[in-house]
């Protein structure tokens, strides 16, 4: 493709237009935009920030990002749908990721996925109808020594079995207060255990 982004130059950032909705979360995006001097090659970084702030990438957000970086809409949409990390639909209140890396696979993580899918009538990659649980699989979280691994609302749980996984998810759904509003998705940053 002939269209290219340009390499980063350290020019003075120009101020970002204030988003008309007044939603303060847009200022987080603006900060990243400024940090990268509105360079088009920062698209992926900006999308990361947008998803962290809003939980998912709505059409509105994609349009905002496209306009700020002066990129075609289809380009931004193409990039947002190319990478696993970005999600264009709202996530559930609780987030359960089952690692399906080779080590976990060898230790039969597929059975855990099957058990959860059956128990909550949801296929991996989707959210339950009531919006309470998003179930997904990951391509190796790099905790192979602890296989099979489950990440439940950001906490890494080692050496799970189908039974223990069901119990943990049940507990998590019961314990957490049902406040109705979806919490910000963890953006797959599953190991925010530190600090």
């Amino acid at each position: 493709m002939s269209v290219k982004t340009s390499p980063p130059s350290r020019t003075r950032p120009r101020p970002a237009a204030e988003h008309p909705s007044g939603d303060p979360r847009f200022s987080l995006i603006d900060r990243t935009l400024k940090r990268f001097s509105f360079q088009q090659d920062a698209l992926i970084e900006v999308l990361h920030t947008a998803q962290e702030a809003f939980g998912f990438l709505s059409d509105d957000l994609l349009i905002y990002v496209a306009h700020q970086l002066k990129l075609p809409l289809s380009w931004v949409y193409g990039v947002a749908t190319f990478y696993h990390f970005f999600t264009l639909t709202p996530q559930g209140e609780h987030n359960c990721i089952v690692c399906m890396g080779t080590a976990c696979y060898v230790k039969r993580a597929a059975e855990i996925v099957a058990a959860l899918q059956q128990a909550y009538s949801v296929t991996a990659g989707e959210t339950t109808r009531d919006g309470r649980l998003s179930l997904s699989t990951a391509r190796c979280l790099g905790s192979c020594g602890l296989a099979p691994v489950l990440v439940l609302d950001g906490a890494v749980l080692p050496r799970e079995t189908p039974e223990s996984a069901l119990e943990r998810v049940r507990q998590q759904l019961m314990n957490a207060t049902h406040n109705g509003a979806p919490q910000p998705a963890t953006n797959g940053h599953a190991f925010e255990g530190e600090e």
Binding site: M1, K4, T5, Q39, Q40, D41, A42, L43, I44, E45, L47, H48, W75, V79, F82, Y83, H84, F85, F86, R139, G188
Partner: peptide, 21 residues
Amino acid sequence: IGAGAFVCGEETALMASIMGM
């Protein structure tokens, strides 16, 4: 920061990703 694509381990794909594509 990558965004989840195994193919980005391939050097030309990785460069495309660094350039925001």
